[in-house]
Design a protein around this nucleic acid. Structure first.
Length: 257
DNA sequence: ATGGCCATCATGGATGGA
């Protein structure tokens, strides 16, 4: 089973790239973030034509998340972590027996800003929501665009980013808190090395120069980790015409025991 | 060379992204 996450930066602007990637990579599940459209604007038929069932949580202009799955989705929940949140940043569903939680964590803009406070509060609420929804004894994958570099190995220039947005200690503490609840950063489990990135700024030829950040993650429960074979970042998808600024990241699971 | 982009809504330029 392959569970991918990809911040597509507009599903409508990116549709040909996303469909090409789906046809080629053949994930069982694709979690998308930054749809930048309402649910009724989502190009549903194109996904269904490729054999995917889709659950969409959208909003006008910004944010928006969706889960596409080859097997039917059940128990779809949106409005994560908070029903009152007007921003469409979380959707969860059971796919192939696994609870898949797809997140687009707020960016935070700048440490100390109102948006930064919202980000930290959002992450605190997420932790509460998870505890109320499931337990780490279940098959759980919490994935998406976390907008957090867990440690300095995930940053092309740690000095320049020291305590900056995406790298500040309070953000990293929230990430560690999710791990403390009972989840494991799947990529880091398999690869201790520095310099594996999932996002590269469009500006300044950052991708060509290999200067990026690792901010898209799979946090998995122990039962999922025991089935995991590896995590793949598809840098090819960041090349070519009209790419997203994020690469798709795929958690690969072996056959269920 | 430390700056370079891109999408949305709208139809110029502000806003947001990370």
């Amino acid at each position: 089973m392959r569970i991918a996450t990809w911040n597509v930066n507009s599903v409508r602007a990116r549709l040909p790239r996303v469909l090409d990637w789906l046809a080629q990579a053949q994930p069982d599940v694709l979690c998308m973030q930054e749809l930048k459209c309402q649910a009724h604007q989502f190009p549903l038929e194109a996904f269904e034509d490729l054999g995917y069932n889709v659950a969409v949580h959208g909003q006008k202009s910004w944010n928006g998340v969706a889960i596409a799955s080859r097997t039917p989705l059940s128990g779809v929940v949106s409005g994560i972590p908070d029903d009152e949140d007007e921003q469409a940043r979380g959707i969860a569903a059971i796919a192939g027996g696994v609870l898949v939680v797809n997140l687009y964590v707020p960016n935070g803009q700048e440490v100390g800003s109102d948006k930064y406070a919202y980000k930290l509060q959002w992450l605190d609420k997420l932790r509460e929501w998870l505890g109320g929804e499931t337990t780490p004894d279940d098959d759980v994958v919490v994935c998406g665009d976390f907008n957090i570099c867990p440690d300095d190995r995930d940053v092309y220039d740690p000095e320049a980013w020291h305590e900056k947005i995406l790298c500040s200690t309070p953000e990293r503490e929230r990430f560690e808190g999710l791990k403390g609840w009972g989840l494991t950063d799947a990529h880091r489990h398999f690869d201790q090395s520095a310099g594996v990135y999932t996002w590269w700024n469009y500006r300044a030829a950052m991708f060509r120069r290999g200067l990026g950040l690792r901010i898209d993650h799979h946090l998995v429960s122990d039962s999922v980790l025991s089935r995991a074979v590896g995590v793949e970042v598809d840098q090819e998808a960041r090349k070519g015409e009209k790419p997203s600024d994020h690469a798709p990241v795929t958690l690969v699971l072996g056959d269920a025991a």
